[in-house]
Write a protein that binds this DNA or RNA. Structure first.
Lengths: 197, 197
DNA sequence: GATATTAGATACACGACTGTAGCTCAAGAC
DNA sequence: GTCTTGAGCTACAGTCGTGTATCTAATATC
């Protein structure tokens, strides 16, 4: 008579991980404004009471999930290849932006209610490797080595790559091709560093 | 006993305008995912039945409101002043993005449910003056006059200004200053056209 | 093995929004 | 002035999410 054959009961880390995964999937499918405790609990296959024991509302769950995300991989400047490193950095960024965590961040940034709840601390933690760090790390590395004038590495210039990738993702919603990323590097970033073709 | 002293009854255009305004305000305050017929009706001070007579659900109302928005002002290249015209174009864009209509568009673009409902036609109509038209109009004008090599006006280059303004709005949420816009033009757009300092 | 936690399974009252129905009456058309 | 349209008003049943309470049994701790 064992309908559900003694499903092992989850606790602690394992359970929380399942809930975090559930809320990230939910926000991707439904949007930040349509998050409900009910849907999160259903997807995580746990009673709502379990959620209320730890969090007060759906956005609370979502922010907690983001807070516990693994930090994004950092671009590591390799050989003496500014162009290649920039492309790789943008690839990292695009991959992250299309992941559930990246999509969740986008949902939060544009949701009035969650934007208001974002603490400085969370913002720092989640976006430290986003705001400009992807290409900035690479650019700083080569600026230090004198590959281009350091005073050209302004906040605007450090943002060019991320901004163009973001815009492309907003416009098309599809992953950028290598050609797209190359074009961004060759036609926008390198010229801004005085490294025209 | 006349509590509400014979409020004139609205019809047609006037009423629809009020509803369009209401839904745009709602989406700015609550987000696309939290739109309800109820809240829209309340804000427009009309019964819900009036909404159901024309639209099937809140997103339907929102998309209709956007469809009837006045087109955004076009940047008109003035004297022989590429730099100034670019800054003015970006100012137009930033102002629009911060308006209710602009915020509504941002909400829609990042809402999974409404993004799916966006028709090509609406996308064209609402975004014709967004995707790249703000600075592209200006750039095309000066490219035609040979102020810079026309082959440098690639899709990527035409997007640089809009992309950086968008990123700044996403990051800070506040209107960019004239200095911000000047920096974008001087440090990112002009170099990409081979017009360094 | 005994004990403390805490996930899992209900149940429930409450409120919000939905979609429809029925009616009254103001505004526009003729 | 009469007629037609459609806004304004009210009511209602149905659904979904909320937040809490209660009980159980599995898991961890000692």
């Amino acid at each position: 008579m064992g309908e559900h054959p003694a499903r092992t009961r989850r606790r602690g880390e394992e359970l929380i991980k399942a809930i975090h995964d559930a809320v990230l999937q939910e926000v991707v499918e439904a949007g930040a404004g349509r998050l409900t405790m009910d849907a999160i609990a259903r997807r995580a296959a746990t009673p709502r009471t379990t959620l209320y024991r730890r969090w007060s509302d759906p956005l609370d769950v979502l922010l907690d999930a983001l807070y516990h995300q693994h930090p994004v991989e950092e671009p590591t400047p390799g050989a003496d290849d500014l162009r290649g490193d920039l492309i790789r950095a943008l690839r990292l960024m695009a991959d992250w932006a299309l992941s559930p965590a990246g999509r969740a961040v986008a949902a939060i940034l544009t949701d009035p209610k969650s934007a208001a709840l974002m603490s400085e601390a969370l913002f720092e933690r989640v976006f430290a490797n986003r705001g400009g760090t992807f290409t900035r790390t690479v650019l700083q590395h080569y600026a230090d080595r004198g590959r281009f004038p350091a005073e050209l590495l302004t906040p605007v210039v450090a943002d060019i790559g991320e901004a163009l990738v973001t815009k492309r993702l907003l416009d098309t919603g599809t992953p950028p091709s290598d050609e797209d990323l190359s074009a961004i590097v060759d036609q926008a970033i390198l010229p801004a560093l005085g490294l025209g073709p």
